[in-house]
């Protein structure tokens, strides 16, 4: 194996600039997925059946088709969906956000159901309205329990974001691939990209542990 990183060294800053692009997509998509996931999970446990059906259908579709397909449908279909061509970057955030919402909604639903029923009874007995009860009593406890699962989802999101390459977003993956094509050496830049992704995931993992420890202080 003859590894030679010297030839791609000048392109290192170019590849590293992809971190910002990847992070931005992941952060925005994660936020979108989380907020939409909460709403969908509340639909799923709602006593209004239609809302539950809607949320279930949503989850079924986004979980039942490939993510790369969803990404391409949103990007290439945007002129027909929205009436104009959207930026690849926007398509990426939308696709990942909508997709992870399906998974996150299931995680949060399980988290809510795992909170002792006595908690909602105690809140109800105090005259606390449903919305405040969910926001202040149930969801904080649910989130604490599902933090590891949520972290998993965000890690998956970070890695899966590499498929935005297929619609031409200049993320880590695409930059590494381009450098490879440019220098006729793919192995080294791809290894480098792998290292960058790995370090990002490790950072996320540590971050998750810190948050988890802080949330467990009350126990």
């Amino acid at each position: 194996m003859n590894l030679d990183f010297t030839s791609i060294l000048p392109s290192l800053p170019y590849i590293l600039r992809g971190i910002g692009v990847t992070l931005q997509i992941v952060a925005l998509a994660g936020l979108l997925g989380f907020l939409l996931g909460i709403i969908l999970s509340l639909f799923k446990i709602s006593s209004i059946k239609v809302l539950g059906w809607l949320a279930d259908a949503y989850t079924s579709i986004f979980r039942g088709t490939p993510l790369v397909l969803q990404l391409m449908i949103i990007y290439f279909g945007s002129p027909q969906i929205f009436g104009y061509q959207i930026e690849p970057y926007v398509a990426a955030v939308l696709a990942f956000g909508l997709n992870s919402a399906a998974y996150i909604s299931e995680i949060i639903r399980a988290g809510i159901l795992a909170v002792d029923k006595g908690q909602s009874e105690a809140a109800m007995a105090l005259g606390v309205p449903y919305r405040k009860m969910m926001l202040n009593i149930i969801l904080p406890q649910a989130l604490k329990n599902i933090l590891p699962a949520l972290m998993n989802e965000f890690i998956t999101l970070t890695k899966e974001s590499a498929i935005v390459t297929t619609i031409g977003v200049m993320d880590i993956m695409r930059r590494a691939y381009q450098v490879g094509a440019d220098k006729f050496r793919f192995f080294e830049p791809l290894l480098l990209a792998g290292l960058i992704y790995y370090l990002m995931v490790i950072t996320l993992t540590i971050l998750g542990k810190v948050v988890e420890r802080r949330m467990r202080r009350g126990d």
Binding site: L126, Q141, G218
Partner: peptide, 22 residues
């Protein structure tokens, strides 16, 4: 119902305190 409950306190067998609040 919410107004009624504000006026009727309840104590449970298993306490049901909010564990994430002091």
């Amino acid at each position: 119902i919410m107004k009624v409950r504000q006026n009727v306190g309840m104590v449970f067998q298993h306490f049901h305190l909010f564990p994430h609040k002091s």
